[in-house]
Design a protein around this nucleic acid. Structure first.
Lengths: 214, 214
DNA sequence: CTCTAAACGGAGAGGCAGTCCCCGCTTATT
DNA sequence: AATAAGCGGGGACTGCCTCTCCGTTTAGAG
């Protein structure tokens, strides 16, 4: 709080805060549906604000994408920590984290990563580290309980969640999202012990994908 | 009439045939990597031909996308039929079909479906029906052998393959494709009997997704 | 080998969508 | 009620993408 007051010398007006939030939410939706190339005017339209308001809050596309990334990361981390604390069965907690991430449609944000966002920005680094930490804890616990097959690492899990929660463009039917839920469940079944086949390659930890993801 | 007019009224010159093939292959790659909005000039460049050559073969983007779809469908169908005939274990055959589709990166083509392609074109309808037929056979056999969990239908399988073979944009590292292979295998493990959890929704047959896919 | 027509490729005109600024109006805050 | 922060929409600018023109190259037949 005190830190924040130094950073924001002039506090935002209440409606400005509200608009900023709506822009971030609208941007998330629009990017998930149409990719990171979606026109900024379209995002403003969805958010119910003028385009100038959007540009006032985020001077360019890169800035907007950056803040969307932070915003969604934060939500995921919070829900994962909640699962870690309140769900006692380790495998159940893992499932919960995966399903929560699916709800946030985190996969839809991956395309942003290629758009000139500075992955070494301190805020992003901190966010990524928190994400990795909680994921690692969930995976470790599930391994220790003997429910999660040993040849799956925390890196596997994060990438898999990204993949499994990608929207399938061009298939917007109402049945698609319930079907996505089914496939997620099949995948989770495949994660359980005992393994039913040998996986190619080797278990990937979080360090392995430092340069490729988030 | 004359030999020419009966066989192929507009017989293409050898180099034209070659170029046409190269354009289709390049288009497939470019679309998988960059989506269906990829500039046509870029596709021509990848194919190693002038842009005018591309436009000569395919008068507009829609025409090109349409033929790419037919081209890839055909390859998938052929490989699936081969699996059906030559792989005797029913579940193995199913796996083969899924892995082959992944190699063709069929998921990367889904975004095309939203781009004004006429799904009722006779050539596409015929292709789709052949695809559905062979998929249904593979699923039926695997069910009959008792290896494939009963709550998975042929529609589930086709959609799942599309999803699982989507490229994850923004993550182009070399490790990603081998990781994709691992996740596919986990999913296939989840498909085996006995089911390890109950799936939400219900098994989807091919008719269920007639309007949403391919 | 020669000839012809089919096919090729580069360059550039034209169009269009997306970005971003300007400026008069509205509203939160005191 | 005063004031300044914030808002919104119109529109110029820009850069990219599409598609065509036309001179050059090459496959294929005799």
């Amino acid at each position: 709080m005190t830190l924040k007051s130094t950073a924001t010398r002039t506090r935002l007006r209440a409606d400005a805060v509200r608009n900023r939030e709506r822009i971030l939410a609208a941007a998330r939706e629009a990017i998930v549906e149409n990719g990171p190339h979606v026109p900024l005017d379209e995002i403003a339209r969805r958010a119910g604000v003028g385009n100038a308001t959007l540009y006032r809050h985020f001077p360019d596309r890169e800035s907007l994408l950056f803040h969307v990334l932070l915003y969604v990361n934060q939500r995921i981390i919070e829900r994962a920590q909640q699962a870690l604390e309140s769900v006692h069965d380790p495998f159940e907690a893992l499932c919960r984290m995966v399903l929560d991430s699916a709800e946030e449609r985190v996969g839809g944000l991956c395309p942003m990563l290629g758009f000139g966002i500075d992955r070494e920005d301190p805020r992003l680094v901190a966010s990524r580290e928190r994400m990795h930490r909680v994921t690692q804890q969930l995976v470790d616990r599930a391994h220790a309980s003997g429910q999660l097959r040993g040849d799956i690492g925390s890196g596997d899990l994060l990438i898999a969640v990204a993949r499994l929660t990608l929207p399938v463009p061009g298939t917007q039917g109402p049945g698609v999202s319930t079907m996505a839920r089914r496939h997620l469940q099949v995948f989770l079944d495949g994660l359980r012990t005992p393994p039913r086949s040998e996986l190619p390659g080797q278990a990937s930890s979080l360090e392995d994908l430092k340069d490729e993801f988030c």
